[in-house]
Design a protein around this nucleic acid. Structure first.
Ligand SMILES: [Mn+2]
Ligand SMILES: [Mn+2]
Ligand SMILES: [Mn+2]
Ligand SMILES: [Mn+2]
Lengths: 236, 236
DNA sequence: GGTAAATTTTAGACATGACTAACTTTTACC
DNA sequence: GGTAAAAGTTAGTCATGTCTAAAATTTACC
């Protein structure tokens, strides 16, 4: 009866095209077909096809070879997807301490399937953990301690105890995985924003004469850390 | 396209076929094409096609018109998917208090994309919240109180305060949505196992003369509750 | 302004995984 | 055992969304 092939809801993939267009429009530059193709890891002709579909749905305005811009309906849609993405990715990185790349991929799947209620609950859970102050310690910090304790225990069980160091003792060219970040809430948040998170791989690029500053690469980005900051990061 | 969490060359949909075959095999009855079709909401010919694909991957043994059964490789993969499914669904229902139907659908998407690490972290988060027992109250209970407080607040804000009753005062034929469940941890767990969870819709079928027991329908299942139990459930 | 390079579109092929319709095999029942 | 119903398969169609190759358009630069 209801042939759901004919119901033109927007598929996950086309929601992603819209998401990327929205992200690009938020930047200064004009939205380019080529950039969309590169971001989606798809050939330019696929982008053209997607643009035509999005135009049909009145989510963007666009003519052949012409500029691409979102309609207000498109912007509304984009905002919804964007918020879901941010919520899920934030949950994965900040609460579960999943590395950015994995979190990105998973969030990009979930964002299309998640209901407003689930989104709200995740936000509330996050808020709950951030505000909850059990015995003087923040709940998220306790959770993350719990994560590292358990990880250590299971590593011990399978007998592969991996030595740990401070990031500050590594030499140029050495690679390591972040195990834990010490320091107060503010500094942890700062590290988080830079993409320094448990499980994230980092490469030490250069170390200044007295070990300060230290230049590292994280997810393709270059970062410069004070020695005092690098001493808060435990790697393995 | 090497995605190492998933079965190589098996799409999410075909993982679901395998999952259903495994679930059915866990029951007593022989696995029937017709049942798979019904569960997947798909025509029988689509099932035949899927069976051929699964056989090609050596996940099941099967010949035309013959019995269907999983190979040991198939069982191994089924277990992996099944555990991911259980983890995600458990998180959604027990922690986030999402209704079973929504949780099912979302878990069925996520199960194919989630890495072992994320699965483990979700389990640890759940365990952390369950064990955390400071200030006398269990963390999950505190979280759920936090959820209801926030829900009430936002309802008040948009001016649509919905009246609440005890489930025990409803009359046959009346429908309601569960708002909160009082009682201790054990009884809450019991309700949870029956599918009684915040946001879940219930219909009162019959009420015995003195209001005990009360027969209700939840997600198509019939349940009989003591009056004393029904008095713990707040609905709207 | 003219030409080459870059970008984008069109046209058509192809893989996937649904579907319908017709056919085959199995099961059920007298 | 014979026959009809049920279950399952095969064959062919269709929508989706990718791709390649070639054509069209825009841009960059002398
Ligand atoms: Mn133009
Ligand atoms: Mn996405
Ligand atoms: Mn047989
Ligand atoms: Mn699934």
């Amino acid at each position: 009866m209801t042939n759901f092939y004919h119901i033109r809801d927007l598929s996950s993939n086309f929601e992603d095209y819209l998401k990327i267009i929205g992200d690009l429009e938020a930047g200064k530059d004009q939205v380019r077909s080529k950039v969309i193709a590169k971001t989606m890891k798809v050939k330019p002709s696929s982008v053209t096809n997607a643009l035509q579909v999005l135009r049909e749905q009145k989510l963007i305005t666009y003519e052949p070879y012409g500029p691409i811009s979102m309609t207000s309906k498109g912007k509304r849609f984009w905002l919804i997807i964007h918020q879901k993405y941010k919520t899920v990715k934030g949950f994965l990185t900040e609460i579960l301490e999943i590395d950015h790349e994995t979190a990105d991929k998973l969030a990009c799947t979930i964002e299309h399937k998640i209901s407003p209620q689930v989104t709200e609950r995740i936000l509330l859970l996050k808020q709950f953990l951030k505000d909850e102050n059990l015995c003087g310690t923040n709940a998220i910090d306790r959770l993350h301690d719990f994560f590292s304790k358990r990880t250590e225990e299971s590593e011990k069980e399978i007998g592969k105890e991996i030595p740990r160091f401070l990031l500050s003792v590594l030499k140029p060219g050495e690679k390591a995985t972040i195990h834990k970040i010490d320091g107060d809430k503010a500094i942890r948040q700062k590290f988080l924003d830079m993409g320094l998170i448990r499980g994230q791989e980092v490469v030490v690029e250069r170390v200044a004469p007295l070990g300060d500053p230290i230049e590292i690469t994280v997810r393709g980005y270059s970062l410069s850390l004070r020695k005092s900051e690098a001493e808060l990061v435990i790697v393995k």
